[in-house]
């Protein structure tokens, strides 16, 4: 029985997968491009699908889903979210330069500090670790006398100070506590930083998810990236109410990841690396490929479908694959 459900040799799975994803894709274009009014919308539908297939370095809206270790309560989730969220000096203090006295005054907002559970002392330490020069904390005002005296350097110093990382994980702009369909609380973050997230104490490392495929590839490797790709593609299609068999998406993900890194589909990725000169020339940038082939004396073995159609032979697919095993004479 299992043998029977296997795909036959010579079945044009690629074309079938392409048609199976492409046909519902045409309906997708028309239905959703925008959801009006909803802020912080993660791209869905066609724009997201294009993003995935193009293997962009970073998605337009990277996000992570994080679960915490231990008991699953809202309070625990908030606690963790609060730790994860990135805070910069800029957002808890007012920074002013005093060019006359060659010093910088950082006025801390105690309310904000309390919210993220930091004391002015902590901030002072952080600043100290990052900078040189004398520090002085008085009435929530940190006065810094930088080592340099040139006005330009002071300005440079302050701009560095503004972006001083105080707390949380780099790149995680926001962390929201959400309740999943299974009743469990989890944290949805704006921005993605998987490597740091896995190191964060209190995070259930088994259930860290990011929609940034390239990041998954960097952190967890190509197989994980493939699974992530399948999941993302399938999710986009499901959200549109389109029923596409997962195996088509899996084939697509396989094709994109088969060389060990995530490749886009198109000129710069898969299609640009086809074996045959003719196939590449038939796709895009015809002359570029022909000239390149001629300078290196390339040979087209006529293995693919496109090449054989161009030449006028039977394509090595389906019935065209069948050959006579025994040669006569």
């Amino acid at each position: 029985m299992r043998e029977k459900t296997k795909i036959d040799v010579g079945e044009a799975v690629g074309i079938v997968a392409a048609q199976s994803i492409g046909e519902p894709g045409t309906q997708m274009t028309m239905r959703t491009f925008h959801y009006a009014g909803v802020a912080e919308q993660v791209p869905t539908g066609l724009p997201r699908l294009i993003e995935l297939v193009d293997a962009r370095k970073e998605p337009k809206k990277p996000f992570m889903d994080v679960y915490m270790l231990g008991e699953n309560t809202e309070a625990a989730a908030r606690e963790l979210a609060q730790q994860i969220e990135r805070t910069k000096l800029d957002s808890v203090a007012q920074i002013e330069e005093n060019f006359l006295d060659k010093k910088i005054e950082v006025t801390l907002d105690t309310k904000e500090l309390e919210l993220i559970k930091l004391t002015p002392e902590d901030v002072k330490k952080k600043i100290k670790a990052a900078t040189s020069g004398s520090l002085d904390l008085k009435d929530n005002v940190i006065t810094i006398k930088p080592g340099t005296t040139s006005l330009r350097n002071i300005r440079r110093f302050t701009s560095k100070l503004r972006l001083l990382h105080l707390k949380g994980i780099e790149k995680i702009k926001r962390a929201l506590v959400l309740k999943g369909k299974d009743g469990k609380y989890f944290i949805r973050t704006d921005g993605s930083n998987m490597a740091a997230m896995l190191k964060q104490p209190g995070v259930d490392t088994q259930h860290v998810y990011t929609n940034d495929v390239k990041e998954v590839e960097r952190v967890l490797g190509i197989e994980a990236a493939r699974v992530c790709l399948v999941r993302e593609i399938k999710q986009v299609l499901d959200m549109q109410g389109l029923t596409v068999d997962v195996r088509h998406c899996m084939l697509l993900a396989d094709a994109m990841t088969m060389d060990g890194d995530v490749k886009s589909i198109g000129r710069h990725g898969l299609s640009g690396e086809k074996a045959g000169v003719l196939a590449r020339a038939a796709f895009e940038e015809t002359i570029k490929h022909l000239i390149k082939a001629s300078t290196s004396g390339e040979e087209d073995k006529l293995i693919g479908v496109t090449e054989n159609i161009i030449v006028g032979q039977t394509v090595p697919v389906g019935t065209g694959l069948v050959r006579l095993k025994m040669k006569l004479g």
């Binding site: 044009a12 392409a18 479908v305 159609i309 039977t314 394509v315 389906g318």
Partner: peptide, 24 residues
């Protein structure tokens, strides 16, 4: 249309359409 024939695996028919019935 070509894609459909490839997808169906009908190589011989495809060759007939594209070659024998056209510009062989």
């Amino acid at each position: 249309e070509r894609d459909c024939l490839i997808g169906y695996g009908a190589s011989m028919l495809l060759r007939e359409r594209l070659l024998e019935e056209s510009d062989r």
